[in-house]
Simulated scan of single mutants.
Amino acid sequence: MRAALPRARTDWAAGGDTDRRQRELLRRYVDAHRAGDHDALTALLREDLRVSFPPLPLWVDGRAAYQEESRRFADPGDYRIVAVGANRQPAVAVLLRRPDHSPFRLHAVEVLRIEADRVAEIVARQMSGST
């Protein structure tokens, strides 16, 4: 990496058009979640999507499997999805308010890997104490 990157981290250039495209996809991803628009969300995910849940040895392969597992195992309550970044990658913070109307709390962070203008991978890290 030393040979490929500028000496000072502050000199590391953003990806230009790539970053703009990723930000736009992230915005559409968040909007689809907020609207509960299953079709719009499906259109943003690659068919061969891979989702992992570190540190658990758990993963899901394929868009359809991910969507089914998400419906089956989602914690009850109201969700808010907020666009964030993690390690210079697009990500979302998933906030959850339990059915008892407690305050919204950070439930998970999902880091997205984007390829060919679609989400190719999601690394979802549930926050401890959020269950």
Rank of each mutant, 00 (worst) to 15 (best):
A43W: 10
L45F: 15
R46V: 02
R46H: 03
E47P: 06
D48C: 11
D48K: 10
D48L: 12
D48E: 06
L49Y: 06
L49E: 05
V51D: 04
V51S: 07
V51F: 00
S52E: 02
P54N: 14
P55Y: 02
L56W: 15
L56M: 15
L58K: 01
W59P: 00
V60G: 02
V60C: 03
D61T: 09
R63W: 01
R63N: 00
R63C: 01
A64I: 05
A65S: 12
A65N: 12
A65T: 13
Y66S: 02
Y66C: 03
Q67C: 02
Q67W: 03
Q67R: 15
Q67V: 01
Q67P: 01
Q67E: 06
E68M: 03
E68W: 09
E68A: 10
E69C: 04
S70M: 04
R71A: 10
D75K: 11
D75L: 15
D75P: 00
P76L: 13
P76A: 11
D78Y: 07
R80V: 13
R80D: 04
R80Q: 09
V82W: 09
V82E: 08
A83K: 04
V84D: 14
V84Y: 03
G85K: 02
G85T: 06
G85R: 02
A86E: 07
N87H: 07
R88K: 08
R88G: 11
Q89L: 13
Q89V: 04
P90V: 14
P90M: 12
P90F: 06
V92E: 05
A93P: 00
A93E: 14
V94P: 01
V94T: 07
V94I: 14
L95W: 15
L95I: 10
L95S: 06
L95G: 08
L95A: 07
R97G: 05
R97N: 03
R98W: 15
R98T: 15
R98S: 09
P99N: 05
D100S: 09
D100P: 12
D100Q: 12
D100V: 11
H101Y: 14
H101T: 15
R105Y: 12
R105D: 13
L106G: 13
H107V: 10
H107E: 11
H107R: 08
A108T: 00
V109S: 01
V109K: 09
E110R: 02
E110K: 02
E110Q: 10
V111Q: 12
V111L: 10
V111N: 04
V111D: 03
L112M: 14
L112A: 09
I114T: 09
I114C: 07
I114D: 00
E115Y: 00
A116H: 14
A116V: 06
R118D: 13
A120N: 04
A120S: 08
E121D: 05
E121A: 10
I122Q: 06
I122A: 08
A124T: 01
Q126I: 09
S128Q: 11
